[in-house]
Protein backbone atom coordinates (compact mmCIF):
# COMPACT_ATOMS: atom_id res chain seq x y z
CA UNK A 1 0.00 0.00 0.00
CA UNK A 2 2.74 2.39 1.02
CA UNK A 3 4.91 1.96 -2.06
CA UNK A 4 1.81 2.16 -4.26
CA UNK A 5 0.74 5.56 -2.94
CA UNK A 6 4.23 7.08 -2.92
CA UNK A 7 4.71 7.30 -6.71
CA UNK A 8 1.14 8.55 -7.05
CA UNK A 9 1.89 11.38 -4.66
CA UNK A 10 5.12 12.16 -6.49
CA UNK A 11 3.35 12.34 -9.82
CA UNK A 12 1.01 15.11 -8.71
CA UNK A 13 3.34 18.07 -9.39
CA UNK A 14 4.25 16.58 -12.76
CA UNK A 15 0.57 16.28 -13.59
CA UNK A 16 0.08 19.93 -12.75
CA UNK A 17 2.85 21.06 -15.09
CA UNK A 18 2.02 18.66 -17.89
CA UNK A 19 -1.72 17.99 -17.68
CA UNK A 20 -2.93 14.81 -19.33
CA UNK A 21 0.54 13.35 -19.84
CA UNK A 22 1.40 12.07 -16.39
CA UNK A 23 -2.19 11.61 -15.33
CA UNK A 24 -2.90 9.06 -18.05
CA UNK A 25 -0.91 6.15 -16.55
CA UNK A 26 -2.75 6.41 -13.23
CA UNK A 27 -6.11 6.31 -15.00
CA UNK A 28 -4.91 3.49 -17.20
CA UNK A 29 -3.62 1.51 -14.22
CA UNK A 30 -6.91 1.94 -12.35
CA UNK A 31 -8.95 1.03 -15.44
CA UNK A 32 -6.89 -2.08 -16.10
CA UNK A 33 -7.12 -2.98 -12.42
CA UNK A 34 -10.93 -2.83 -12.52
CA UNK A 35 -10.93 -4.90 -15.70
CA UNK A 36 -8.67 -7.58 -14.20
CA UNK A 37 -10.69 -7.64 -10.97
CA UNK A 38 -13.96 -8.22 -12.84
CA UNK A 39 -12.31 -10.93 -14.94
CA UNK A 40 -10.99 -12.69 -11.80
CA UNK A 41 -14.44 -12.54 -10.22
CA UNK A 42 -15.91 -13.99 -13.38
CA UNK A 43 -13.36 -16.86 -13.49
CA UNK A 44 -13.98 -17.55 -9.81
CA UNK A 45 -17.76 -17.51 -10.19
CA UNK A 46 -17.83 -19.98 -13.05
CA UNK A 47 -15.12 -22.24 -11.52
CA UNK A 48 -17.00 -22.40 -8.21
CA UNK A 49 -20.26 -23.06 -10.03
CA UNK A 50 -21.99 -20.05 -8.42
CA UNK A 51 -24.13 -19.74 -11.52
CA UNK A 52 -25.18 -22.28 -14.12
CA UNK A 53 -23.13 -22.12 -17.37
CA UNK A 54 -26.31 -21.17 -19.23
CA UNK A 55 -26.46 -17.97 -17.21
CA UNK A 56 -22.76 -17.33 -16.91
CA UNK A 57 -20.42 -19.32 -19.14
CA UNK A 58 -16.74 -19.38 -18.22
CA UNK A 59 -14.46 -16.77 -19.86
CA UNK A 60 -12.72 -19.58 -21.71
CA UNK A 61 -16.00 -20.58 -23.34
CA UNK A 62 -16.72 -17.03 -24.36
CA UNK A 63 -13.24 -16.86 -25.87
CA UNK A 64 -13.91 -20.13 -27.69
CA UNK A 65 -17.18 -18.70 -29.04
CA UNK A 66 -15.31 -15.64 -30.22
CA UNK A 67 -12.72 -17.79 -32.02
CA UNK A 68 -15.51 -19.93 -33.47
CA UNK A 69 -17.42 -16.98 -34.91
CA UNK A 70 -14.22 -15.44 -36.21
CA UNK A 71 -13.08 -18.56 -38.05
CA UNK A 72 -16.17 -20.65 -38.85
CA UNK A 73 -18.84 -17.98 -38.56
CA UNK A 74 -22.16 -17.95 -36.73
CA UNK A 75 -25.63 -16.89 -37.88
CA UNK A 76 -24.93 -16.59 -41.64
CA UNK A 77 -21.62 -14.78 -41.38
CA UNK A 78 -18.21 -14.64 -39.74
CA UNK A 79 -17.42 -12.14 -37.04
CA UNK A 80 -15.87 -9.87 -39.66
CA UNK A 81 -19.04 -9.94 -41.72
CA UNK A 82 -21.13 -9.02 -38.67
CA UNK A 83 -18.70 -6.33 -37.60
CA UNK A 84 -18.51 -4.87 -41.08
CA UNK A 85 -22.29 -4.65 -41.39
CA UNK A 86 -22.69 -3.01 -37.99
CA UNK A 87 -19.79 -0.61 -38.41
CA UNK A 88 -21.12 0.42 -41.81
CA UNK A 89 -24.58 1.13 -40.37
CA UNK A 90 -23.31 3.12 -37.41
CA UNK A 91 -20.87 5.24 -39.43
CA UNK A 92 -23.23 5.75 -42.38
CA UNK A 93 -25.76 6.99 -39.84
CA UNK A 94 -23.15 9.28 -38.27
CA UNK A 95 -22.14 10.84 -41.59
CA UNK A 96 -25.74 11.21 -42.68
CA UNK A 97 -26.78 12.75 -39.35
CA UNK A 98 -23.83 15.16 -39.35
CA UNK A 99 -24.78 16.35 -42.83
CA UNK A 100 -28.25 17.22 -41.55
CA UNK A 101 -27.65 17.95 -37.87
CA UNK A 102 -24.80 20.47 -38.13
CA UNK A 103 -26.59 22.77 -40.62
CA UNK A 104 -29.80 22.46 -38.62
CA UNK A 105 -27.90 23.40 -35.46
CA UNK A 106 -26.29 26.38 -37.15
CA UNK A 107 -29.66 27.57 -38.44
CA UNK A 108 -31.20 27.24 -34.97
CA UNK A 109 -28.28 29.14 -33.48
CA UNK A 110 -28.30 32.01 -35.98
CA UNK A 111 -31.88 32.56 -37.09
CA UNK A 112 -34.86 33.26 -34.93
CA UNK A 113 -37.24 32.00 -37.60
CA UNK A 114 -35.18 28.84 -38.10
CA UNK A 115 -35.14 28.30 -34.38
CA UNK A 116 -38.91 28.68 -34.15
CA UNK A 117 -39.46 26.07 -36.84
CA UNK A 118 -36.72 23.54 -36.13
CA UNK A 119 -36.33 23.61 -32.35
CA UNK A 120 -39.72 21.96 -31.59
CA UNK A 121 -38.95 19.22 -34.13
CA UNK A 122 -35.63 18.41 -32.48
CA UNK A 123 -37.22 18.52 -29.04
CA UNK A 124 -39.91 16.13 -30.31
CA UNK A 125 -37.42 13.61 -31.65
CA UNK A 126 -34.97 13.86 -28.75
CA UNK A 127 -36.73 11.73 -26.10
CA UNK A 128 -38.19 9.09 -28.46
CA UNK A 129 -37.02 5.52 -27.69
CA UNK A 130 -35.76 3.78 -30.88
CA UNK A 131 -37.94 0.72 -30.27
CA UNK A 132 -40.99 2.99 -30.39
CA UNK A 133 -40.33 4.49 -33.82
CA UNK A 134 -38.75 1.37 -35.33
CA UNK A 135 -42.09 -0.08 -36.55
CA UNK A 136 -43.05 3.21 -38.13
CA UNK A 137 -39.74 3.47 -39.97
CA UNK A 138 -40.19 -0.06 -41.28
CA UNK A 139 -43.71 0.73 -42.50
CA UNK A 140 -42.41 3.87 -44.23
CA UNK A 141 -39.05 2.74 -45.54
CA UNK A 142 -39.30 -1.03 -45.74
CA UNK A 143 -37.03 -3.61 -44.19
CA UNK A 144 -33.91 -2.80 -46.19
CA UNK A 145 -30.65 -1.17 -45.22
CA UNK A 146 -31.96 2.44 -45.33
CA UNK A 147 -34.40 1.94 -42.49
CA UNK A 148 -31.65 0.49 -40.26
CA UNK A 149 -29.38 3.45 -40.94
CA UNK A 150 -32.33 5.78 -40.40
CA UNK A 151 -33.22 4.29 -37.01
CA UNK A 152 -29.65 4.78 -35.82
CA UNK A 153 -29.44 8.21 -37.43
CA UNK A 154 -32.55 9.47 -35.64
CA UNK A 155 -31.05 8.46 -32.32
CA UNK A 156 -27.94 10.46 -33.22
CA UNK A 157 -29.71 13.59 -34.42
CA UNK A 158 -30.45 15.35 -31.13
CA UNK A 159 -26.91 15.16 -29.68
CA UNK A 160 -25.45 16.52 -32.92
CA UNK A 161 -27.96 19.37 -33.23
CA UNK A 162 -27.84 20.38 -29.58
CA UNK A 163 -24.05 20.34 -29.42
CA UNK A 164 -23.86 22.43 -32.61
CA UNK A 165 -26.30 24.99 -31.22
CA UNK A 166 -24.44 25.39 -27.95
CA UNK A 167 -21.07 25.38 -29.73
CA UNK A 168 -22.08 28.14 -32.13
CA UNK A 169 -22.47 30.41 -29.11
CA UNK A 170 -18.89 29.73 -28.04
CA UNK A 171 -17.50 32.52 -30.22
CA UNK A 172 -16.96 35.63 -28.09
CA UNK A 173 -18.78 38.86 -28.87
CA UNK A 174 -15.54 40.52 -29.96
CA UNK A 175 -14.63 37.59 -32.25
CA UNK A 176 -17.99 38.02 -33.96
CA UNK A 177 -17.74 41.80 -34.06
CA UNK A 178 -14.21 41.64 -35.48
CA UNK A 179 -15.44 39.58 -38.45
CA UNK A 180 -18.37 41.94 -38.94
CA UNK A 181 -16.07 44.93 -38.90
CA UNK A 182 -13.98 43.28 -41.63
CA UNK A 183 -17.11 43.10 -43.75
CA UNK A 184 -18.16 39.48 -43.20
CA UNK A 185 -21.56 38.55 -44.61
CA UNK A 186 -23.87 36.37 -42.55
CA UNK A 187 -22.74 33.26 -44.40
CA UNK A 188 -19.07 34.19 -44.01
CA UNK A 189 -19.61 34.86 -40.32
CA UNK A 190 -21.07 31.40 -39.82
CA UNK A 191 -18.38 29.69 -41.91
CA UNK A 192 -15.34 31.55 -40.59
CA UNK A 193 -16.25 32.13 -36.96
CA UNK A 194 -19.29 30.31 -35.61
CA UNK A 195 -18.69 26.89 -37.18
CA UNK A 196 -15.00 26.67 -36.20
CA UNK A 197 -15.83 27.93 -32.71
CA UNK A 198 -18.48 25.20 -32.50
CA UNK A 199 -16.17 22.35 -33.56
CA UNK A 200 -15.03 21.30 -30.07
CA UNK A 201 -18.64 21.09 -28.98
CA UNK A 202 -19.61 19.27 -32.20
CA UNK A 203 -16.90 16.70 -31.49
CA UNK A 204 -18.36 16.11 -28.05
CA UNK A 205 -21.75 15.75 -29.72
CA UNK A 206 -20.30 13.19 -32.13
CA UNK A 207 -18.97 11.14 -29.24
CA UNK A 208 -22.36 11.17 -27.54
CA UNK A 209 -24.01 10.37 -30.88
CA UNK A 210 -21.73 7.40 -31.44
CA UNK A 211 -22.69 6.11 -28.02
CA UNK A 212 -26.35 6.49 -28.91
CA UNK A 213 -25.66 4.76 -32.23
CA UNK A 214 -24.13 1.67 -30.65
CA UNK A 215 -27.01 1.61 -28.15
CA UNK A 216 -29.55 1.66 -30.97
CA UNK A 217 -27.73 -0.89 -33.13
CA UNK A 218 -29.40 -3.97 -31.63
CA UNK A 219 -32.84 -2.42 -32.04
CA UNK A 220 -32.08 -1.51 -35.64
CA UNK A 221 -31.02 -5.07 -36.39
CA UNK A 222 -34.11 -6.60 -34.73
CA UNK A 223 -36.08 -6.89 -37.94
CA UNK A 224 -35.03 -8.57 -41.16
CA UNK A 225 -31.29 -8.32 -40.71
CA UNK A 226 -29.12 -11.12 -42.05
CA UNK A 227 -25.90 -9.96 -40.51
CA UNK A 228 -24.67 -7.52 -37.91
CA UNK A 229 -23.55 -7.80 -34.30
CA UNK A 230 -27.02 -7.04 -32.97
CA UNK A 231 -28.46 -9.72 -35.23
CA UNK A 232 -25.79 -12.16 -34.10
CA UNK A 233 -26.61 -11.54 -30.44
CA UNK A 234 -30.33 -11.97 -31.00
CA UNK A 235 -29.84 -15.21 -32.96
CA UNK A 236 -27.66 -16.57 -30.18
CA UNK A 237 -30.13 -15.47 -27.52
CA UNK A 238 -32.96 -17.38 -29.18
CA UNK A 239 -31.07 -20.65 -28.65
CA UNK A 240 -29.66 -19.66 -25.26
CA UNK A 241 -26.10 -19.67 -26.65
CA UNK A 242 -25.04 -17.42 -23.81
CA UNK A 243 -21.31 -17.54 -24.59
CA UNK A 244 -22.01 -16.12 -28.06
CA UNK A 245 -24.25 -13.40 -26.59
CA UNK A 246 -21.47 -12.30 -24.25
CA UNK A 247 -18.92 -12.51 -27.05
CA UNK A 248 -21.12 -10.20 -29.15
CA UNK A 249 -21.51 -7.74 -26.30
CA UNK A 250 -17.76 -7.63 -25.76
CA UNK A 251 -17.14 -6.99 -29.47
CA UNK A 252 -19.63 -4.10 -29.49
CA UNK A 253 -18.02 -2.65 -26.41
CA UNK A 254 -14.55 -2.98 -27.97
CA UNK A 255 -15.70 -1.31 -31.20
CA UNK A 256 -17.36 1.52 -29.26
CA UNK A 257 -14.16 2.07 -27.28
CA UNK A 258 -12.05 2.04 -30.43
CA UNK A 259 -14.29 4.52 -32.24
CA UNK A 260 -14.20 6.79 -29.18
CA UNK A 261 -10.41 6.60 -29.19
CA UNK A 262 -10.29 7.33 -32.92
CA UNK A 263 -12.46 10.42 -32.40
CA UNK A 264 -10.23 11.64 -29.59
CA UNK A 265 -7.13 11.20 -31.71
CA UNK A 266 -8.77 13.05 -34.61
CA UNK A 267 -9.72 15.83 -32.22
CA UNK A 268 -6.19 16.13 -30.91
CA UNK A 269 -4.77 16.07 -34.42
CA UNK A 270 -7.14 18.52 -36.11
CA UNK A 271 -8.34 20.74 -33.26
CA UNK A 272 -5.11 21.39 -31.35
CA UNK A 273 -6.47 24.72 -30.10
CA UNK A 274 -9.13 23.14 -27.87
CA UNK A 275 -8.81 24.44 -24.33
CA UNK A 276 -6.36 27.17 -25.37
CA UNK A 277 -8.32 30.38 -25.37
Amino acid sequence: MVDLSAPAALSVPAAASRPGLRRLPLGLVLGLGTFVAVLCLWVLASAQGWASPVFLPAPARVWAALVRVATEGYANATLWGHMGASLWRVFAALVFTMLIGVPVGLIIATSRIGRGILDPLVEFIRPLPPLAYLPLIIIWCGIGEPSKVLVIGIAMLAPIVISTVSGARAASESQIRAAQAFGATRVQLVREVMLPAALPSIFTGMRIALGAGWTTLVAAELVAATRGLGYMIQSAAQFLVTDMVIAGILVISALATLSELALRLTERRFLPWIGKS
Binding site: S172, S174, Q175, A178, A197, S277
Partner: peptide, 11 residues
Amino acid sequence: VVFQDDALYPW
Protein backbone atom coordinates in the same frame (compact mmCIF):
# COMPACT_ATOMS: atom_id res chain seq x y z
CA VAL B 1 -11.29 47.58 -34.81
CA VAL B 2 -8.63 46.36 -32.37
CA PHE B 3 -10.30 44.85 -29.33
CA GLN B 4 -9.15 44.91 -25.73
CA ASP B 5 -9.26 41.11 -25.60
CA ASP B 6 -7.36 40.48 -28.82
CA ALA B 7 -10.35 38.71 -30.48
CA LEU B 8 -8.04 36.47 -32.51
CA TYR B 9 -9.26 33.13 -33.84
CA PRO B 10 -7.33 30.26 -32.23
CA TRP B 11 -8.39 27.86 -35.01
